[in-house]
Write a protein that binds this DNA or RNA. Structure first.
Lengths: 217, 217
DNA sequence: TATTGAGAATTGTTGAACAATATCTTAGCC
DNA sequence: GGCTAAGATATTGTTCAACAATTCTCAATA
């Protein structure tokens, strides 16, 4: 057993949350969950702390933990940080090692292959890998970890997106064009394009969030 | 009782660590510390969790918690992330609100005042506030939080710096010049200067770390 | 010297008890 | 009827001691 009980429990909860089994806003009762998963309240609370650190749940004093609700302000902020980290990656691209640069191209390739096969779920995953690879060009473990946390948060918001295809399809060509800019060493242009790219994506998500908001009124 | 026992214990440990009473690498025995502080192991473990979240200690499964050792690779990485975040702040400076911009200037003012009074400890604090204010120009809560964690980590490495004055004095003028660039709207120049600024600071710290390393051989 | 295995030391997990806080219920009032 | 306030109930927060699981120590052995 190389994983502690708390880590295993956190993994189970993470899967349930990301799989939609525990929708945003759900309260996680210590007693009920502990009985369900067969662990003590103490261990469960330890698992909660791990998930709090991943921003998947929030902890309100004397009220318990709730599945994180990612609102428009959160998404906007996440995109601010993404822009900072991914732009830093682009600026480090020239000095980055070959494996790091190839990871970027590979993710774009995989996205196109998935699109050809009609697997839009996988197109989404490849897109996240693409952006993570972009930030990873910095060669910084802390940036990698921060990026993972950000994308995990973002996945919570993606539950609101009606169609993976409508959201991802327009970006396939932009990803390809962007990679070409990197390969040609057009870093300044690439950075500008990336900024507007992320801004466009943000607007799409905010639009979807607003629509869902109006539905629930 | 507005502070839990665990929080008090964490405070005691934090003081001991930052005061040098518990040098980096020290293992914090649950039983010995618990007896020493008069709390149960469980409470002590809760305190440990708080400190882990602050990056002051690390937790290794089945081995216990150790006072964090910040090595050259860590410092290098921290400066990579700082560069990304502070540069993002500079690029957002034009659109940032007045209070955010004034906070940058205020920190530089306070640094100069402290230097005039010979309080080099306070010069160091003001310098940290200056860089935090720089990153805060982005107006992003997540960037603010990340910056706080980074600077807390960095404080651990500063224990290796022999003289606060020798380290901070040369940067007083650079801080002032940098603020002037911001006020004049010379953002591109400011960003370039900031990059070399952080690079120079990194080299100084790495040099001090190397010297301390050689002493301990 | 390197290895191995039993025992010691240490951390991981649990369940319980009690305290503090929040939520729900209900009785009384306007 | 609707509203407020007091009390009852449920939930989380904190601490403890005991037991399980893991790692470490160190002598015995090849």
């Amino acid at each position: 057993m190389t994983l502690s009980t708390a880590q295993r429990v956190a993994g189970v909860l993470r899967d349930r949350i990301e799989g939609g089994g525990l929708p945003p806003g759900t309260r996680l009762s210590e007693e009920a969950l502990g009985r369900d998963l067969g662990v003590s309240r103490n261990t469960l609370r330890e698992a909660f702390r791990l998930l709090v650190h991943e921003s998947l749940v929030v902890h309100r004093l004397n009220r318990g933990v709730f599945v994180r609700v990612v609102d428009a302000a959160d998404v906007t902020d996440i995109y601010r940080v993404r822009t900072a980290l991914e732009c830093a990656g682009v600026r480090a691209a020239a000095g980055a090692g070959r494996p790091l640069r190839e990871a970027v191209t590979a993710a774009v390739d995989e996205g196109e292959r998935a699109a050809a096969g009609g697997d839009w779920q996988e197109v989404g995953s490849a897109d996240l890998r693409f952006h993570r690879a972009l930030a990873a060009l910095s060669g910084s473990p802390r940036i990698d970890a921060a990026m993972d946390r950000l994308l995990a948060e973002l996945r919570l918001a993606f539950h609101a997106m009606p169609s993976a295809r409508r959201f991802h399809e327009p970006f396939l060509a932009r990803n390809r064009a962007f990679v070409r800019l990197l390969e040609d060493g057009e870093y300044a242009t690439a950075e500008r394009e990336l900024t507007t790219y992320l801004d466009d994506a943000l607007k799409l998500i905010l639009g979807a969030l607003r629509e869902r908001e109006e539905e629930n009124t």
